[in-house]
């Protein structure tokens, strides 16, 4: 049934959808402007299985949802949506959609380990949260977060600069990636110390570590491997 002309001003501004199905019933007319689809067509059990089969996520099965981890969490004070208890619950249920909705929080663990030490069931919460985040990244549920971007940048810089990291090489890489911006004034302020200390030389010719070529090979090989618990 189309929406009567007289009612159109009332729902002005409300997004009108093409088709809305609530509880398996298609609703049309005025109702579809107000109702939100709420069909959860089932959880994906493979999420729990896959995370439990990683080295970090192996203890996820022990959780009993008491909330000890979240109530003492450092990050929770800054982000209401950061809840290890909830991440574990959603991952075990396989509620991918809900995990995706939490993408701005999922990556923010600061690894203070309070949760891991306090867990009454021996869940290595910090590791499990990372395993859940890794799962979400691997399956494209979440966009790449600043933490991961920086980690990759860091690793890339190490690999590029002969196994060493320097302030200048990391800062310039971060600037290139758009993570930090320098004003002209910043650059002018920094120029003096940079020239004086001689750290600019690192940029021109990186000081490699001993046997870098061999170590590089080992590292590259190690990074390829995906570790699975026995």
């Amino acid at each position: 049934m189309p929406i009567p002309e007289s009612e159109k001003p009332i729902i002005k501004g409300v997004i009108q959808k093409e088709k809305v199905i609530v509880d398996g019933v298609e609703v049309d007319g005025t109702w579809n402007a107000f109702l939100i689809e709420r069909t959860q067509t089932g959880y994906d059990p493979s999420v729990w299985d896959e995370i439990a089969n990683t080295l970090e996520g192996v203890t996820i099965s022990a959780c009993w949802q008491c909330g000890t981890c979240t109530s003492g969490c450092t990050m929770r004070e800054y982000d209401d949506n950061f809840s290890p208890r909830r991440f574990i619950d959603l991952a075990r249920k396989g509620d991918k959609q809900a995990l995706a909705e939490l993408q701005d929080s999922l990556w923010r663990c600061v690894s203070c380990q309070k949760c891991t030490h306090r867990c009454p069931k021996g869940v290595l919460v910090e590791e499990v949260v990372h395993a859940i985040h890794n799962y979400a990244l691997k399956h494209g549920l979440v966009k790449k977060d600043p933490g991961t971007i920086f980690d990759e940048l860091f690793l890339e810089t190490v690999m590029k600069n002969g196994g060493r990291i320097t302030e200048l090489s990391l800062a310039s890489a971060a600037a290139k990636a758009g993570m930090v911006t320098f004003s002209l004034r910043d650059l002018l302020t920094m120029a003096g110390p940079i020239l004086k200390s001689g750290i600019y030389k690192d940029l021109l010719k990186p000081a490699k570590i001993k046997n870098w070529d061999k170590i590089k090979q080992v590292l590259e090989e190690a990074m390829k491997e995906e570790v699975v618990p026995e």
Binding site: D23, G24, R38, T39, Q40, T41, G42, Y43, Q65, R86, D89, L90, K93, D95, A98, E101
Partner: peptide, 26 residues
């Protein structure tokens, strides 16, 4: 509970640990 297609049973509930959605699960 509702009768779903192909003799499945569709439940209506709420996940009270995660209040983000009502559940309709087959």
């Amino acid at each position: 509970f509702m009768r779903g297609p192909d003799d499945t049973v569709v439940i209506k509930g709420e996940d009270t640990m995660n209040l983000n959605r009502a559940l309709v699960v087959p």
